[in-house]
Amino acid sequence: MFAIFRGDVEARQFIAFWLDGGRALAGMIWDDNDAIQDLVRAGARVDTSALSDTETPLGSLVGASP
Rank of each mutant, 00 (worst) to 15 (best):
M1V: 04
I4C: 11
R6W: 02
G7I: 06
D8F: 00
D8S: 07
V9T: 14
V9Y: 09
E10C: 02
A11P: 00
A11C: 06
R12Q: 15
F14W: 14
I15K: 11
A16K: 14
A16P: 01
F17D: 06
W18T: 13
D20A: 06
R23M: 04
R23N: 06
A24G: 08
L25C: 09
A26C: 07
G27A: 11
M28H: 13
I29N: 08
I29V: 11
W30K: 13
W30A: 12
N33Q: 13
D34Q: 12
A35S: 10
I36C: 03
I36H: 09
I36Q: 04
L39G: 06
L39F: 00
V40S: 05
V40C: 09
V40Q: 11
V40I: 14
R41I: 03
A42Q: 14
A42G: 03
G43V: 01
G43Q: 12
R45S: 10
V46S: 03
D47R: 06
T48H: 05
S49C: 00
S49A: 06
A50I: 02
A50G: 04
L51M: 11
S52V: 00
D53L: 01
T56E: 13
T56M: 10
P57C: 11
G59S: 05
S60Y: 01
L61G: 01
V62N: 10
